[in-house]
Design a binder for these strands. Structure first.
Lengths: 158, 158
DNA sequence: CTGAATTTTGAGCGTTCTGCCCAAAAGTTC
DNA sequence: GAACTTTTGGGCAGAACGCTCAAAATTCAG
């Protein structure tokens, strides 16, 4: 399976250029990064094919969809039938992502909501999911550091 | 400012098509969604311009960069000079995102690490950040629900 | 350190897409 | 029902794409 085929310096430069201008053409990227057009094309295709690039959905901001509230719900689960719990959570559209984590809490559930009432409703839905024991909702109030990978990319680009 | 210009049904269909094939051409997207080429072009340009689409960096998977470990570090801060704390956190490359959240804990820090030792080091860096009081590291062990917005998009696409 | 294997480069070529124009049709708003 | 906005479809020149190929450069292994 395509495990961690590490991105090399050339890939990293291409990705940085793409981060700067996501709609740039292959030729433009090749120019900006100083590599041949053929190489850029090969690399880009490979990046998309091997799964080094995550789903496009990651770029769709829930805010733009009318869900301006972000919350993180932590929950404990009865360890039996975790998969069942996971698929029940996946059935809730507002659940964006669920991590199984170590520590005193078992689940970190990333949700989006239209407003406070909506969030309350969703929290209720989640508590009703079979296997969910206790939950605690934390509202994301401010984005102190917006998501970025550029520092890691620059490191990889040498 | 371009606040929440809600994405309409046409946009949602385009985004779903893009999620299915991120490298699809505009004509291909227009065909798949059954809208005119000109309309698709206008919409796509607008989506990118108005910020309905988040940064491309969101698609770069830290795993592919050689950081297979994901962790969430929660921390409490001395409420003074939160901005200073934020910029100190932003200076750590492995810090992917920081949320200010409500609840017993103030910060949710999303980090990537090469391995357990690396994570330990990063946790140390974060604890050393001025303003950080206490911290607790939770390792993401399993992705129960991988990130997705498709359910919300389908709802928006009617 | 040298030979083999892989990758990058540069050039070319036909097809397709892009970015733009415009006017007519469709859909919305008041 | 009139005014306005958006979508549609057509067209057009220039650019980009996807592909091939052979030479040059780089990487890897013995």
């Amino acid at each position: 399976m395509p495990s961690t085929e590490t991105v090399d310096a050339i890939d990293a430069r291409l990705l940085l250029a793409l981060a700067d201008d996501p709609r740039a053409t292959t030729v433009a990227l090749a120019e900006r990064t100083g590599i041949a057009r053929n190489t850029a094309q090969t690399r880009l295709t490979r990046l998309e094919r091997t799964g080094a690039l995550d789903t496009f959905e990651r770029r769709v901001s829930p805010e733009a969809l009318g869900y301006p509230l972000t919350a993180f719900i932590t929950a404990q689960v009865t360890q039996r039938r975790l998969d069942e719990t996971a698929s029940a959570l996946a059935a809730v559209p507002e659940v964006l992502e669920v991590h199984g984590i170590s520590g005193t809490v078992d689940l970190l559930i990333h949700v989006a909501a239209k407003d406070a009432d909506d969030l309350y409703r969703i929290a209720g839905l989640i508590l009703a999911v079979p296997g969910i024991e206790r939950s605690s909702t934390a509202l994301a109030m401010r984005r102190l550091v917006p998501y970025r990978v550029a520092p890691l990319l620059r490191r990889a680009a040498d």
